[in-house]
Each structure stands twice: as C-alpha cells, then as structure tokens.
C-alpha cells in the first residue's frame, strides 16, 4: 500500500538525516503481514492487519493504549502464542515464508527475530552470561567472548561494562540494563529486532542513549519499535504505522507510510487527531 510513494521519501527529521548514509535506494520488505487477526481466547485483539516492513529501516508502531501495538509485534516472532489463549489467523511472511506455516519452529524463528521488552529483563546472572545466553541455548560455541564483546560494542555498552563483565547484571542502571538486553538480542545476530516500548521504563537521558543506538543499529538490522511516544517515533523511525481500537475492541491499522508523511500530512483524520494530541 505504500510501496509507490516510498521512492521519493523525503527525510525531513534532522536526526534521521544525520544517520542516513547512502544506502540502497529501494528498500526490500522483510516481513509481510497479511490479513492478520490476533486473539486472546475468544477476544479478537487485532483485525485485518496488512503491512510490509522494510529491511534495515526503523518502523514505528504507534497508537493509543490498548490498540494492540504490543500484540502486533509479539505476533511477528510468535511470542503472542505464549500468552494464555493467544492465537492468530492470517499470515506473516518472513523473507517470503509464512512463519505460521506447518514446518516452522518458533524457537528457531526467535533466534532470527530478536526482541527487547518494555521493562529491562536481564537474567539474574553476570553481564557476560546474559549476552552469551543466546549463544549457549542456540548451541553456538567458539569465540564466545569475541561475540559478547562485539554485541556489547554494538549496543554501545562495552566501555561502561568492560571491566566488570563478571558482575551481576542487576547492578546496572535501568538504561544500561536495557542496552544489555539489546546486546543480548544482538548476540545471536538476528536480522530483525522487535522492540516493545523499550524506553517506557527509562529516564530521558537513558531514552536518548537507546534512541541513538536504534538509529545506529538500523544501518544493519531491521528494527520494529512499538512506542506510545510520538516524538520518539518521529525521531527514530523511517516508517510509521498508526493503530487504533475499533468499537469491537479489536485494533486495526489506520495508516501506514513514511514517518514524515504520517506526521506532516496524515491521510486519516484519526491519525491527525492522535498526533496532535487530541486523544491518547
């Protein structure tokens, strides 16, 4: 639905311009959501969601609380089915393959599509063990410490923790914990990282650090971020999807397009009302 006008995408926000090097002019889609319906038991939480998420771009999902933003990202790595009664209809194509297809192992899928959660959730183990955990469970042996260091560097945490890798991760500050969780996700070299309101439990400074990190990472991985903070969406994302709750309490996609367009020239009056703060 948005592929047409995607080519002449004007990058208006300054932050994006700063990190926008010359890159492939034509973004390819990595995840195609087709007619997705998500349920909790009998209750439908999402209806008829269709959108394509682009490789090595940041896509933001915004919308009022309860509209199913989190449910949507949790459908993308099949975490939704871990919630009680959680199941879906429709398709999610990852690199052309339906992740809800018969032969797909959700465990394997999740090692390729990483996730970062609302509240930092480091394991009560050392910093090193936290990052190495994904390698361990995926049976990846060899040059573990190298991989751990690289992941921590990519998560811009290395300099702060390199002298205390053996210390408990719980001793880190909230912002550091969240970057550690990002490093943990990065260690298994996922192609996509889902972020479910990663900054909602962080203070402004820590939020800035994570946003900076998201922009840097978007040069090499695809990032899909749920946020209730519209400024954040505007600051970090290339594309924005706006979700709302319908009368039947199911979330639906109102609008999806380049962030600049959604924010400066929304097609839907709902979107406009939301981004101008008339409801939340």
């Amino acid at each position: 639905m948005v592929t047409e006008n995607f080519l002449n995408l004007p990058q208006t926000t300054t932050a994006e311009a700063a990190v926008e090097p010359a890159r492939d002019a034509t973004p390819e889609s990595v995840i195609d959501v087709r007619e997705l319906q998500a349920y909790y038991g009998e209750n439908r939480a999402l209806k008829d969601i269709s959108l394509s998420l682009y490789s090595r771009r940041v896509s933001a999902i915004i919308g009022p609380s309860g509209c199913g933003k989190s449910t949507l990202v949790r459908c993308l790595n099949r975490m939704h089915e871990m919630s009680s009664g959680g199941h879906v209809k429709g398709e999610v194509l990852y690199q052309g393959e339906n992740i809800y297809g018969a032969g797909v192992d959700p465990v394997e899928l999740r090692s390729r599509i990483g996730m970062v959660f609302q509240k930092p959730n480091p394991f009560p183990k050392s910093i090193f063990e936290n990052v190495a955990f994904g390698l361990k469970v995926n049976g990846i042996s060899g040059n573990t410490s190298e991989r751990v260091e690289r992941s921590l560097r990519r998560a811009a945490l290395w300099d702060e923790v390199k002298d205390r890798l053996k210390q408990s991760a719980l001793q880190l500050s909230g912002g550091q914990q969240q970057r550690l969780c990002i490093a943990r996700a990065l260690a298994v070299e996922p192609e996509v990282i889902l972020m479910d309101e990663p900054c909602s439990a962080l203070d402004p400074m820590a939020t800035l650090a994570v946003e900076e990190l998201i922009r840097e990472l978007s040069q090499e991985v695809t990032i899909i971020i749920v946020t209730h903070n519209m400024q954040q969406a505007a600051r970090v994302s290339h594309h924005t999807a706006f979700l709302m709750m319908d009368q039947d309490k199911a979330g639906y996609l109102v609008e999806y397009g380049p962030t600049s367009e959604v924010f400066t020239n929304p097609k839907s009056e709902h979107t406009e009302a939301y981004i101008t703060g008339r409801f939340s």
Binding site: L135, N138, I140, R150, R153, R154, E189, E220
Partner: peptide, 11 residues
C-alpha cells in the same frame, strides 16, 4: 560499531 558479522551462526 564494528562491522556486522554476516556469518550468522548456525543454531
């Protein structure tokens, strides 16, 4: 950021 490891490990 160090260069990305495209040698994605095989689980």
């Amino acid at each position: 950021i160090p260069a990305i490891a495209r040698d994605r490990p095989i689980p």
